[in-house]
């Protein structure tokens, strides 16, 4: 009996602090996002009025929101496809070919991942600067000095400038991750494929990809979710939604509505949509990428 009590005390002391912090700073705020989305909640006067789903109705007709929706989807699709494809190919090349200085590349490619998004954004500001920028000065060699390209100032280009920065940031991390899982694919499979005359490309598609598929699946869902968040962090520093809202994404629009504009209820309604959207998306990815797991 005494032993049972000591055990309970031990469990309680160990688990309770974590549970309490987790509830206060994660569960309750998450529930609040949903609750607040049903209120019309102005900032300074701080009067809350229950309005049901009316925030969501307004959202559907809000062209700024729809544009941020479009930008987010565009970003997710391009950044995911390009980053996944390139990091898989690079990982396969580095781990399959006997590359000299493999470790050097691994170290260098991972660097963007340890830098703060603020730092990366500042670096890309220097690259994209229309007059003193690194990119325009290189391009200037080919196209002369005539009208510099406004990488962050042109509403048709700005999203792609963001996409490049995001791919630059993410590629090394996923490459190192895939290299780790490719290392567990047994060498003998490639040897027998070599004997049967399968080319490198064929080996990549019929040995490497299927065998690390589980890993690709998990990273894919997390990558999509983290792109939604990262795009927000990049937009916040690199473009601040500009020019004129052209580069706003989901969460930057939410943050501006809620924090800067003090329409908390409206902002949180956007939060709910983003929440459902990312859950839905990862569910779809989960189903769409389901394969029979292969053993080796």
């Amino acid at each position: 009996m005494k032993k049972g009590k000591a055990r309970s005390v031990f469990i309680g002391v160990c688990v309770l602090p974590a549970v309490i912090l987790f509830f206060i700073f994660m569960i309750i705020p998450t529930l609040n996002v949903f609750r607040m989305s049903l209120y019309k909640w102005g900032g300074i006067s701080n009067n809350k009025e229950f309005v049901g789903l009316s925030n969501f109705k307004t959202l559907m007709g809000d062209t700024n929101f729809l544009r941020s929706f479009q930008n987010t989807v565009l970003l997710i699709v391009i950044v995911t496809i390009v980053t996944m494809a390139l990091s898989l190919i690079f990982a396969a090349i580095i781990s399959r070919e006997k590359i000299k200085g493999e470790n050097f590349y691994r170290i260098i490619f991972y660097i963007p991942n340890i830098l703060s998004v603020v730092v990366i954004s500042a670096i890309f500001s220097a690259i994209y600067d229309p007059n003193q920028g690194l990119l325009n000065s290189i391009l200037g060699i080919f196209r002369g000095d005539k009208d510099p390209i406004l990488w962050l100032g042109d509403k048709n280009i700005v999203v792609y400038s963001l996409i490049i920065a995001m791919i630059w940031q993410a590629i090394g991390y996923y490459m190192v991750m895939y290299m780790a899982s490719m290392a567990s694919v047994p060498e003998s499979l490639y040897e027998s494929a070599d004997l049967e005359g399968a080319g490198k490309v064929q080996q990549f598609f019929s040995i490497t990809l299927p065998l690390i598929w589980t890993n690709i699946r998990t990273t894919l869902s997390f990558f999509v979710i983290s792109s939604i968040n990262l795009s927000f962090q990049f937009v916040k520093v690199l473009t601040r939604g500009g020019p004129n809202g052209a580069s706003d994404v989901f969460l930057s629009y939410m943050y501006d509505q809620a924090y800067t504009n003090s329409s908390y209820g409206y902002g949180m309604a956007i939060g709910v949509i983003v929440f459902l959207f990312s859950f839905g998306l990862s569910a779809i990815i989960n189903v769409a990428t389901k394969r029979e797991p292969l053993e080796f």
Binding site: P29, T30, N32, V33, N229, L251, Y255
Partner: peptide
């Protein structure tokens, strides 16, 4: 990023 506003409030 979703919950920073409720935490702030």
């Amino acid at each position: 990023n979703y919950i920073v506003v409720p935490i702030f409030l």
